[in-house]
Design a protein around this nucleic acid. Structure first.
Lengths: 189, 189
DNA sequence: CGACGCCTTGATAAATGTCAAACGTCGTGG
DNA sequence: CCACGACGTTTGACATTTATCAAGGCGTCG
């Protein structure tokens, strides 16, 4: 299935009938907090699976960040299959456990300083986009801020500061070149 | 198996050979951050299962918070069993997915204000300890602080403030009476 | 060219952390 | 039984980080 920028894929509270795999593009899952802020739970890039939940309702909403093609699989079919095929069951379990790992790293991120958050984010995206030199971020500053639990201003300032220290370069606002990965890792630590 | 206060159950990086179920007492899993702070990943109370990981290494360390008895199950045995018995596989998946849900709530907690964090924590513990009136917390202020990503002072001040507003009462530092659950829920929101 | 959206920058405010000290409680030993 | 000491908690004064509010720049697309 094809989705355009900001298209809703599913909404919080909706019945979780499907599993999804990103073929191209990028997806964010998020929740709107009572004070109106939006917290992003995760970003999904090509190859990633999302929509896995125990409860039969989605806990977060999902939206396409950019033009995306998403593979959609009926959940009940997969669960039925898993009941018969231990290999599928194992796969299902592995995907859930991977999501758990990612969630845990994200949780550990959220208790750190703004600098550390941004540094970790850049390293994570560098890996996941398998960027050698420059990377083109699919998400806006607002998305990054909501993922890291910061304001857009703090993200912007932190990036500017990293640029000033020549740790990164910002040819355009979406394109980031990591000049000094070691310095980022030090912040990351 | 029996563990005393602050006994290590397993350590980060150790091979994850076992799964654990709390029979009595309480357990915390945690990670020491580079700056020396300790982030608690989760608390486990009687009935809870922990030690589930995809990777064969533990990502966090686990310690008994108080005198505890823990049921220990060989991981490989359970995984082998799951390969033959779809029911067990499903159980295993459910536990992992439940951990994912908990982790997600915890993540959402960490981006909120100190007041909201403490209020959520009290509600969560109230439910999990199935406390009708008063509850006896198994963990110290430091544990709470490290769980919520706050300092011990902020936790203490917030509790004092809630007491001043008569939302809670603190007969002793470990015993908490929720006087006005609705007010907590409002903060929680 | 102009308008709009997104990003950056600046000044100020609010929340939380840090450092320091006092307080209470509990267990120990005189 | 009381005094003392250790440890966990609370409280206070101050520092730092990050958010908020406001304005300006910059690129894109009609």
């Amino acid at each position: 299935m094809a989705f355009s920028r900001d298209d809703e894929i599913y909404s919080e509270g909706e019945v979780a009938d499907y599993l999804y795999k990103v073929e191209s593009g990028a997806v964010r899952t998020y929740k709107i907090l009572s004070d109106g802020r939006r917290q992003i739970g995760a970003f999904y890039l090509p190859g990633d699976v999302f929509g896995l939940e125990v409860s039969d309702e989605h806990q977060l909403s999902a939206e396409a960040i950019s033009e995306s093609t998403i593979l959609v699989v009926k959940r009940s079919a997969l669960i039925a299959l898993a009941a018969r095929d231990p290999g599928v069951a194992r796969q299902l379990w592995m995907f859930t456990a991977q999501a758990l790992d990612r969630m845990q790293s994200h949780m550990l991120l959220l208790v750190r300083s703004a600098q550390e958050k941004v540094a970790c984010f850049l390293l994570e995206m560098g890996e996941r986009l398998s960027a050698t030199e420059a990377m083109e971020l699919p998400m806006s500053r607002q998305d990054i801020a909501d993922y890291l639990g910061l304001t857009i201003e703090t993200v912007s300032r932190t990036l500017t500061m990293l640029q000033t220290k020549s740790t990164i370069a910002l040819p355009t606002s979406r394109r980031i070149v990591v000049r000094n990965r070691a310095a980022l890792r030090r912040l990351n630590a």
